[in-house]
Design a protein around this nucleic acid. Structure first.
Length: 573
RNA sequence: CGGGGUGUAGCGCAGCCUGGUAGCGCAACUGCUUUGGGAGCAGUGGGUCGGGGGUUCGAAUCCCUCCACCCCGACCA
């Protein structure tokens, strides 16, 4: 490809509304253009990368025995009503009506459609297991689309759905998918981690997320330095090593005017946050009979953070988690937030393991401007119910007992999940077993955010000059930069001949034949992240050399012209 | 949805407070010079100042309204 025939559309300045580096670089490099909120056009340069991601995904899915198909983006409401998700899904589901007034949605995912297909197509256990996948455009009407294609409303996803007669078969395919995903992310050349994710009510290791590691990632993942344990912070179990000490202090009330936060209380009393207890008041779950608690108190050590996912799984707590409002708290407890504590509190009290292990701690006195010191469970107030309700922090022991936890940030690009019979039961997807009896099948589903992978690769691999593509994802693998292409016949001949050779060899080479000065040419090739660069100039040719530089090399090197083809082959292999 | 902010040329911005008919840099186009790290000079084109309404002799500027976009959003006890 020659730049003069490729719509290379780079920008020197960063568009003001792009917040994160991948979004900025994708705009500056001319990979994408915004059409409306959360909707993007992929320009030729960006599409080349997207297609490379797709190709690797497709090859590895095929290798793992999955079968590609393609389902419609628009889906009839009846299927969603059948699964119950027409009501459950909420405003993220884009709904529309056709000219006859029939209701449809634009698919955010395809469990209903694939399950419907399956029940019409497959009748016998002999046809199982089956694993279908597609690479297709999805639409989710996000509350707040942002970060370019990282969190777009319309995006490209690979979604796969497997069908099985029993749990063992599902587990085998699940393991195959785990292996295939690992191969896919290995081939991308990205630094990634599979992590255990919310395993839900079924129990066991039924879900893994694949995260591309990047400091800007939206998810926190916890991993052990002593084993291969890795889990989303949302679900990583927080263990308390400390044993509660004996009380050594009496309980006292102290004046703490204007001290509302843990930080302010600690500064005032000269204590570390680890010696304090904070009390959060959340809405209770009224339960089926309506006799559940209206409010519930959750106690954490002062330096810890509440984990909402864990908290809302508690039977007393309303899901989704809702903090009580200030007015409500004042009417029930009689003080403002900032002065609440569990002593004498007429609410169910649930303490995190570490909060329950405190002795002689400081907490709010349920009276504005006052705190209690030297408080001890069992002596000054009843023993609390104990639960794991905090986020793990750096240095916590690993839940598998091996090593300590570190925290990394990641971008979720893949998710594999054992669905069970949620959809197959609701939609009566059954096959006949060996006894001729109808059996409901069990399902797995497996997603990869194809367009998000592109953004995540950039988040992980860039410098102040632009993108640094891993070889497998680069839109072009080799940039040919001739200096004075339009003036020097020798340079032009050499560059054209080499370019032609590259095409024969199947090398994605980009020849920059624009009449630009070298600096401008180099800057563009670095911005779009081409991994290898070859320069031809009169000066070099006269000395019998060409110049080579890898995208992340410090300096360029001069290489003898005779070695050109062998040298390039070596670099690309 | 709530809070905050921004809409002026393809991109980045100034002008608005204190009304007087729109400007800078980059990009684009033409010509000449230049050619190893985003060249120089000269010239050219491109804007119903987000839309609508109002005030005024006169509105990018003041007022009202709608729209779009961006950011933040219970970890506080």
């Amino acid at each position: 490809m020659k730049t003069s025939r490729f719509h290379l559309s780079t920008m020197k300045e960063t568009p003001a509304d792009a917040e994160i580096v991948s979004h900025q670089l994708m705009l500056r490099a001319g990979m994408i253009r915004r059409l409306a909120s959360g909707l993007y056009t992929w320009l030729p340069l960006g599409l080349r990368v997207l297609r490379k991601v797709e190709a690797i995904v497709r090859e590895e899915m095929n290798r793992a025995g999955a079968l590609e198909l393609l389902m419609p983006a628009v889906q009839p409401a009846e299927l969603w009503q059948e699964s119950g998700r027409w009501e459950q899904y909420g405003p993220e589901l884009l709904r529309l009506k056709d000219r006859h007034g029939r209701e449809f949605c634009i698919g955010p995912t395809h469990e209903e459609v694939i399950t419907d297909l399956f029940r019409r197509e497959v009748k016998s256990y002999k046809q199982l297991p089956l694993n279908f996948y597609q690479i297709q455009t999805k639409f989710r009407d996000e509350i707040r689309p942002r970060f370019g294609v990282m969190r777009a409303r319309e995006f490209v996803m690979k979604d796969a759905y497997s069908f099985h007669l029993d749990a063992e078969s599902l587990q085998r395919t699940y393991d195959d998918m785990f292996t295939a995903y690992s191969r896919i992310f290995d081939r991308f050349g990205l630094d990634y981690r599979p992590v255990a994710a919310d395993s839900g009510a079924i129990g066991g290791n039924t879900s893994h997320e694949f995260h591309v590691l990047a400091d800007s990632g939206e998810d926190a993942i916890a991993f052990s330095d002593g084993s291969d344990y890795a889990a989303n912070v949302e679900m990583a179990e927080a263990i308390c090593e400390q044993k509660r000490g004996e009380p050594t202090q009496d309980m006292h009330t102290v004046d703490t005017p204007n001290a509302h936060t843990i930080e302010e209380v600690c500064a005032l009393l000269g204590l570390p946050a680890e010696q304090t207890l904070k009390t959060l008041i959340v809405r209770g779950d009224p339960g089926e009979d309506g006799n559940g608690p209206e409010l519930v108190a959750l106690c954490l050590r002062g330096d810890h953070e509440l984990n909402a996912v864990k908290a809302e799984k508690l039977p007393q707590v309303a899901a989704p988690l809702q903090m009580a409002d200030a007015e409500h708290i004042r009417s029930v407890i009689g003080c403002d937030i900032g002065s609440i504590g569990p002593v004498g509190l007429n609410l169910p009290v649930i303490a995190d393991r570490c909060a329950a292990a405190l002795a002689d701690f400081v907490c709010g006195a349920n009276e504005n401007g006052k705190h209690l010191t030297g408080v001890n469970w069992g002596r000054d107030l009843p023993e609390p119910e104990v639960a794991d309700i905090r986020n793990v922090v750096e240095g916590d022991p690993s839940p598998d007992g091996k090593g300590r936890l570190g925290i990394l940030r990641g971008i979720e690009v893949g998710h594999i999940f054992q669905l069970g019979d949620k959809y197959s039961r609701a939609m009566k997807a059954e096959v006949l077993d060996e006894n001729g009896k109808a059996r409901t099948v069990t399902m797995g589903c497996y997603g990869i955010g194809v367009s998000r992978v592109v953004a995540a690769a950039i988040e992980q691999n860039h410098d102040d000059r632009g993108i640094i593509w891993p070889m497998a994802l680069a839109p072009f693998t080799l940039a040919i930069c001739p200096i004075n292409y339009h003036k020097s016949e020798a340079v032009r001949n050499e560059a054209d001949a080499f370019h032609a050779w590259c095409l024969e060899q199947g090398i994605d080479a980009l020849l920059d034949d624009r009449p630009l000065r070298p600096g401008a040419m180099f800057a563009d090739m670095e911005l779009i992240g081409v991994p290898h660069r070859v320069v031809f100039s009169d000066r070099g040719l006269q000395a019998g050399n060409f110049e080579y530089k890898g995208r992340s090399d410090e300096a360029s090197e001069n290489v003898a012209l005779e070695r050109l083809k062998a040298f390039v082959r070596e670099k690309l292999d």
